[in-house]
Design a protein around this nucleic acid. Structure first.
Length: 279
DNA sequence: AGTGGCTCCTGGCGGC
DNA sequence: TGCCGCCAGGAGCCAC
């Protein structure tokens, strides 16, 4: 599940290879990957030089001369670069392929086909990302911002953390891990979080995301970087997908509940509900 | 407006 | 051994 750390891992890898190359051609094997046709995408993108790579939340942004391409990996998206390792054919063809001159091919693989590609002029970018919450590592995401985002809300704390309009980049894995680190119960009403707890949560979000980036992401399911390498953060998870296993801090069995349709993992002892919840 | 439920998609896995 | 049905989840959409 590519979240901010996984997309950042992809961005850093590509940033060492793509800038300066010309996107010479592209082929779309699965038309559902974009609302734009292969011909439209080629018209907009082909022949342009790559200027750089950015990330916004879980979106990967490829800056080209006078044009922007945006890719969302969603659940199972993989970006593979042929110079970084042999791209071995697997059962399913890539959803699209970009060819660079001189040099490598970029394959976008995506088993569950939720990933999406967009292309537009730079002037359209602000509208594209309008309504998206601040970057966790940006200046706007302060403790005060977090407190205001939680204040008065009855929705589960975890649901607010994962709401991309409130905060960009946090998904299911890092929400569970950040809440564990902050010792906060995922089902606490967001508005019940006090000032000291918000301070802990703010630090926990940043520390958890940074640990994910430092370990090249979590390869829980299919995530690999553009060289086909797995991340290592899955080996350090405290609660995510550890239901029934002992908490690494206190030994209590990790519990699993469903919060807004998402598997949610927590330690009932380290993350007490403070009597507000019958759990 | 805030909240929650549904949908997309398919490989993998549990159950019988 | 084989097959059916269910599950995972980011984000958009819809209903209340």
């Amino acid at each position: 599940m590519p979240e901010l750390p996984e997309v950042e891992t992809v961005r850093r890898r590509l940033a060492g290879h793509l800038p300066g190359l010309v996107l010479s051609d592209l082929r779309v094997m699965d038309a559902t990957v974009s609302g734009q046709s292969e011909a439209e995408l080629r018209e907009l993108l082909a022949g342009r030089r790559v200027l750089g790579l950015r990330r916004r939340g879980k979106y990967l942004i490829i800056d080209l001369e006078d044009m922007v391409a945006v890719l969302h990996l969603r659940m199972t998206g993989q970006v593979l670069l042929s110079t970084l390792g042999d791209i071995k054919p697997e059962g399913r063809p890539p959803r699209f392929v970009w060819s660079f001159a001189p040099g490598p091919d970029l394959h976008f693989r995506d088993v569950r086909r939720f990933g999406r590609l967009w292309a537009f002029v730079p002037a359209a970018e602000a509208e594209f990302f309008a309504g998206m919450g601040p970057e966790p590592f940006g200046k706007e995401f302060t403790v005060d911002y977090l407190r205001a985002a939680l204040e008065g809300r009855t929705a589960p704390l975890k649901a607010v953390l994962m709401d991309q309009r409130r905060l960009a980049g946090v998904g299911n894995i890092y929400a569970d891990e950040a809440l564990f680190r902050a010792r906060l119960h995922p089902l606490r009403p967001a508005g019940s979080v006090g000032p000291r707890e918000a301070l802990r949560l703010h630090a926990a979000i940043l520390e958890t995301l940074q640990a994910g980036i430092d370990n090249a992401g979590s390869s829980i399911d299919t995530f690999v970087d553009p060289a086909g390498q797995r991340g290592a953060f899955q080996e350090m998870l405290s609660v995510y997908q550890r239901a029934g296993e002992p908490c690494r801090v206190c030994g209590t069995a990790v519990r699993r509940v469903v919060v807004t349709g998402r598997g949610t993992h927590f330690c009932p002892r380290c993350q007490p509900s403070r009597g507000r919840l019958a759990l």
